[in-house]
């Protein structure tokens, strides 16, 4: 009997050993939630290792999970002296890294100097204001304004209407993004400052913020909707501020000499600005763009009263009106002059 028990005990023990050993292998890997259990709290891990949970959730990186970039993190973390095996950005973004490596900017800053991988967003989710804020962490605003003032007319207007990357990357095509601004304290942009998500939420009584202008919720802002917003006395304290952003971001940061030629922007004609978007803030700090319907140039004139780009936003209707006025001025020289020529003998 004792022998039988011994015979059963041994396989059971072996099975337990195998199962437990196998258990180590099939146990679920650490999830992002596990990481954020500690890393969302700066009190636990310190400011440097802390992650803003909301901002991280809005990034494309969140879907990949923490271990995609930190593969060495295991159960012994953080007792293993913090080994977490950082992945290089170029492992995934090789084309961007290759383009950036060729730019003079790469000598001065690496990817993470400009992009916090835990808060990174797609280009269209970032406002022009945020783009400039990023550059301003190294390039001090006042100094940059003074340096541009040496050659750039209307310096403050240009710098308030253009993210740095519009001129300092190789992007050739531009889009116009319109942001709602609130009348407020004096700022670099004048007496209006960018409206926050909470500001817009208060204006829409808790409805989707885009409904402030996109009234029918069809995700295309019509010229009529833009005009209705601009003419509504309720929104007298709000104005639309336009910024010309690159249509497609590149990482070829440089001082580009073709941007010194004003006609790079001012001579391209209205076609360059046909792609227009209303850009609204979201609760997580990102922005969502709603395209604006392309309309008759004269309609756009009233639809975006504060965006005017000399030489580029002229429109055919006004040009025709001007031509008719000029033609009126020609009536006397040509009409009267012709009759004068025919009757010249009468005055001798």
């Amino acid at each position: 009997m004792r022998g039988i028990k011994r015979m059963l005990w041994l396989p059971t023990l072996a099975l337990l050993v195998v199962l437990s050993a196998g258990g180590w292998e099939v146990a679920p890997a650490m999830e992002s939630g596990d990481c954020l259990g500690c890393h969302a709290d700066s009190g636990s891990v310190g400011e440097r290792a802390a992650i803003d949970e909301t901002a991280f959730a809005a990034t494309p990186h969140a879907d990949m999970g923490c271990l995609a970039c930190h593969p060495s993190v295991g159960d012994s973390h953080p007792d293993d002296a913090g080994a977490f095996g950082e992945t290089d950005c170029s492992d995934c973004h090789s084309d961007v890294a290759a383009a950036y490596a060729k730019s003079p900017h790469s000598v001065n800053a690496g990817c993470t100097d400009c992009h916090n991988p835990h808060e990174v967003r797609a280009q269209h989710e970032v406002s022009g204001y945020d783009m400039n804020r990023q550059c301003a962490t190294c390039h001090e605003g006042q100094e940059m304004t003074e340096r541009h003032r040496q050659w750039l007319p209307q310096t403050r207007i240009h710098l308030a209407s253009l993210p740095c990357i519009t001129c300092h990357t190789g992007s050739e095509k531009m889009a116009l993004e319109l942001y709602v601004t609130n009348e407020g304290q004096s700022t670099a942009e004048g007496d209006f400052e960018l409206a926050s998500y909470q500001d817009l939420l208060a204006l829409t009584d808790g409805e989707e913020v885009a409904s402030l202008i996109n009234r029918d919720g069809n995700h295309i802002v019509s010229i009529d909707e833009l005009r209705a917003f601009n003419q509504n006395p309720v929104y007298r304290g709000q104005r639309l501020h336009g910024m010309m952003v690159p249509a497609q971001m590149t990482h070829s940061y440089d001082i580009l000499y073709n941007r010194w030629d004003c006609t790079f922007c001012h001579g391209t004609g209205p076609k360059s600005l046909q792609k227009t978007y209303l850009s609204f803030p979201n609760s997580d700090g990102t922005y969502s763009r709603v395209p604006v319907e392309s309309g008759a140039a004269l309609s756009v004139l009233y639809a975006t009263p504060d965006f005017y780009m000399v030489g580029a936003t002229r429109n055919m209707a006004l040009n025709l009106a001007g031509a008719m006025i000029l033609a009126g001025g020609m009536v006397m020289p040509f009409g009267h002059g012709f009759l004068r020529f025919l009757t010249r003998k009468n005055r001798k």
Binding site: L301, Y308, G322, I325, L326
Partner: peptide, 22 residues
């Protein structure tokens, strides 16, 4: 708005130019 100001400026300039011809 600035666009209206620029448009008015342009049309006024055309009117003065027409006056100049006459």
């Amino acid at each position: 708005g600035i666009k209206l100001v620029a448009s008015v400026h342009f049309l006024l300039a055309c009117s003065l130019c027409a006056f100049l011809f006459t």
